[in-house]
Design a binder for these strands. Structure first.
Lengths: 220, 220
DNA sequence: CTACCTTTGTGAAGGTTTTCACAAGCCGCG
DNA sequence: CGCGGCTTGTGAAAACCTTCACAAAGGTAG
């Protein structure tokens, strides 16, 4: 039993599966706080807005976490999911772009909770240089390479204006960073070994716009 | 030719298709600025990081927008996509939660460009009340129902702390709002006729964490 | 007008993801 | 210890999505 686990998977795991795993983990942490120590696929599915079969299939891709007749031990499953998702360690994150969005992200407690530690902040604006955010000096984007290297950065959060993206992106990639969280509304072209996740709020609003328009059209 | 268009669709359109349509529109607006007046599915696909067949299939769900041998007229296709996505009108948006994230969103120009007009801002903090953001008064969340009604709000951006979400959500739904953009890291339970889009940056970072862990495991 | 080049729109094929359904396994109780 | 109720893990089926491949159609040049 319990063969694959965190290791190198043979099967390719889809983006949607990873999102669900992430969601399961959040739910487990919520119910753990509430004192529940065991949970069935049925209940987990109810809270995650999916089906019990989906939950079991997702988990079965990584091993055997449950007990038949009983369900899943909450603490154990949470820990298993953390291992699968690579959350059993901390990640060193650099925030590039200290504008409104950057500042909101920096303050956001959810990152630190998951051990995504923002250990460097950079901005091109000379006016910002020298100020400190919660003790971390805002450094010049000109020093990007040096900061990425000396701080051993794993992940870059790109929160600069669209016009500034291409230049910064090339340098981030050249510096060997393999993970980018992109807030600019543009497609980043990156080598295959670099992972990019986009956060595009306009796209989300457009999806709402589409849904609302459809509903209106259907209903008359 | 050109039968379905914006109207009530028989086929159910998937979330991923809508995201691609949104992306196509952004690309068309970019190349339009550059003076191109015609574009092939091949070129659009290249810029959208997908395949020509995918582009044609996506568009064919809504009608016939191209000319064989020539490609798509950029301006016309952009306008067709705006109609499909419901962007051929403005949307009245209320921002609930005037904290760091709310403030960053309010300033973000991308929303106004697409005619998502933030016409109301609410917050529970009495200290914020009476201040004005770009001329819009920050109002008390206690007045939520009245504001949603008098301002004829289409979409609510939920940017309040997780603990405050359940109370606010119920009232937003009761007030008849059918579209919600949710920034709280929790599943919203809503009636079937209410559309929700989640923006969850922790989940995006976790997807990066997973990808980076996988890569490390594979490579040794 | 015809021949030829190009690119769309779309059935059919292929692939992936989700759902179904049930044997296997765990627990508690008598 | 054996039975019954419950829930997992998983092949098989169904649904969904993407890719292929080609007929249909616009344009152009001769």
């Amino acid at each position: 039993m319990e063969a694959p686990r965190g290791g190198a998977l043979s099967r390719k795991i889809s983006e949607t599966t990873v999102r669900r795993l992430s969601l399961y983990l959040r739910i487990l942490e919520e119910v753990e706080g509430a004192g529940t120590d065991t949970i069935s696929s049925e209940e987990l599915a109810g809270r995650a807005d999916t089906t019990a079969a989906q939950v079991r299939k997702d988990l079965s891709l990584f091993g055997s976490f449950g007990k038949r007749g009983l369900g899943y031990a909450v603490i154990q499953l949470a820990s298993g999911l953390r291992e699968i998702l690579g959350l059993d360690r901390s990640w060193r994150v650099a925030l590039v772009g200290a504008g409104r969005i950057g500042s909101a992200l920096f303050e956001y407690a959810g990152f630190r909770q998951r051990r995504f530690d923002i250990v460097a902040v950079l901005d091109a604006d000379p006016g910002k240089r020298g100020t400190r955010w919660d003790g971390i000096p805002v450094r010049d984007t000109a020093d990007l390479e040096e900061v990425l290297r000396t701080e051993a950065i794993d992940i870059v959060i790109l929160a600069v204006p669209a016009a500034a993206v291409p230049g910064v992106l090339d340098r981030v990639i050249a510096a060997g960073v393999k993970g980018i969280l992109n807030f600019a509304p543009m497609q980043l072209r990156v080598p295959a070994d670099v992972a990019v996740q986009d956060v595009n709020m306009v796209m989300e609003l457009e999806a709402l716009s589409f849904a609302l328009s459809q509903a209106k059209a259907a209903q008359g």
